[in-house]
Design a protein around this nucleic acid. Structure first.
Length: 404
RNA sequence: GCUGGGAUAGCGAAGUGGUCAAACGCAUCAGACUGUAAAUCUGCCGGCUUCGGCCUUCGUAGGUUCGACUCCUACUCCCAGCACCA
């Protein structure tokens, strides 16, 4: 498949500035994709964009990944409210964490360029910036942008000059990368497309050259209608200390049938033929959740590696299979202990729930007990009690802790 | 700058001196049912708790009052209209 064909097949097409998508097949280019260090981990919203980047890389494009140490100090305006400024220390820590994840998830060679716009923006002086960059933008254009309208319109929450100016900084990044690294294509999620066009505008205005932007759609959960992203409060993180590998695997395993095809295309490297086979097999008996199992295994492998994916699979088999905890080998117990918080036996159940994070307080633990949500080794329990045996504590459907 | 309206829990939105940790809807969480799905129904839904209570919240800071989400003052921010600018 050509790049343009693959992008269309996978659904990585939203808006772009190309005359036609097939222009992408003409030859390799240098592109960049950037994100701000507004959290200490990427989430699966970013992952889709990175999978799109990987697509370009497979077809010979050269990636430049940018973690925005400068843009992160301002914050990309949301269409609802002004962001709180992050501390500089926090930004620096987040930056380091994200850079590592990008290299790992995209399976990039060690020499892949991870750039930080603070490296060039830190030196930029205000007046020269206004004279060169500020002059290139018309106020009408800036005010026309959708989120600006949302923020300053009726019912809006207002917007500060700092956030309002964000797009100029990001536009400057593109210009800088164009000048220094011959980058003439920016990839982004659909929500960033407006910021990309600022860069294109600058490059045209100041360099007289044509650069392009290419965006992929925001990933929407078809069933709930909500987007995958940390702002939505339903983030699935790529950092295993924030979303454990088991939880990550479970997230994909729990997907609805209707979303399978879409997620295979976005989040795995399957070919059309392979996907066809998987879906055929899945549809023979949807209840067996074959498709979900494949999806979970593949995506977990992309993000956390083959070994981690195998462990998650194995744990799932243990927990949701017929096996009893008493039948588990020492080795399997060790595997569980690696994946779940553990507590020492002999303690009271309520304390264990709090210690392992299954409940945030004893009060919540009591409510869960009263609500029939807690089980020990598969037996529902309604009262606090001492747990003296090796046991698997379960809260709800798939939150676990081990007592040993 | 002037005048008027507004700011309530994750979101939306009631509440105009005590019965307010705050109606209702959505979301989250949990239960039943299921395919670890969806839909539906049910419960919970500020924090902690030895379940007796305790603590913190209705933009921010003060004040009046036995008592304030409710009244007063100042401030911050938002919206609308007018004025200014053009």
């Amino acid at each position: 498949m050509k790049l343009s064909e693959e992008l269309q097949w996978r659904g990585f097409v939203a808006e772009h500035t190309l005359d036609q998508i097939s222009d992408l097949d003409k030859g390799s280019r240098n592109f960049y994709w950037g994100t701000d260090p507004s959290a200490d981990s990427l989430h699966i919203g970013h992952l889709a964009a990175l999978m799109m980047c990987a697509c370009f890389v497979r077809h010979g494009y050269t990636p430049y990944y940018l973690v925005g140490g400068a843009t992160g100090q301002i914050g990309d305006p949301k269409d609802t409210v002004e962001r709180d400024l992050k501390g500089l220390d926090e930004i620096a820590a987040n930056k380091a964490a994200l850079a590592k994840q990008i290299v790992r998830v995209t399976h990039s060679p060690a020499d892949t360029k991870i750039l930080d716009n603070l490296d060039w923006f830190g030196e930029v002086k205000f007046l020269p910036f206004l004279r060169e960059i500020g002059k290139a933008f018309s106020m009408t254009q800036l005010l026309d942008r959708q989120f600006v309208q949302a923020r300053i319109g009726e019912g809006g929450s207002g917007i500060s000059y700092a956030e309002f100016s964000y797009t100029l900084i990001q536009g400057y990044d593109f210009l800088h990368l164009f000048r220094e690294h011959n980058v003439d294509l920016q990839l982004c999620g659909a929500d960033q497309y407006g910021n990309c066009t600022s860069g294109i505008h600058l490059i045209k205005r100041l360099e007289g050259a044509k650069a392009d932007a290419y965006s992929c759609p925001l990933i929407i959960d078809k069933v709930t209608g909500r987007k995958f992203g940390k702002s939505e409060g339903n983030a699935v993180w790529l950092d295993s200390t924030k979303t454990s590998i088991f939880d990550f695997y479970q997230f994909w395993l729990n997907q609805a049938d209707e979303t399978l095809e879409e997620f295979f295309k976005y989040y795995t490297f399957v070919t059309p033929e392979e996907l066809d086979q998987i879906l055929t097999k899945h549809n023979e008996n949807p209840g067996a959740r074959y498709g979900q199992r494949q999806l979970a295994a593949m995506v977990t492998e992309v993000v956390h590696g083959a070994e981690a994916a195998k462990s998650a699979e194995k744990i799932t088999a243990i927990l949701f299979g017929d096996g009893k905890l008493s039948d588990l080998t020492a080795e399997e117990l060790d595997l569980l202990a690696e994946s779940f918080p553990t507590a020492n036996k002999g303690a009271q159940l309520l304390d264990i729930l709090v210690e392992t994070g299954l409940a945030s307080s004893k009060g919540e633990g009591r409510k869960l007990l009263a609500g029939n949500a807690i089980s020990i080794n598969g037996e529902k329990v309604a009262d606090d009690q001492a747990v003296s045996e090796t046991a698997l504590i379960k809260r709800g459907k798939n939150k676990f802790a081990l007592v040993r």
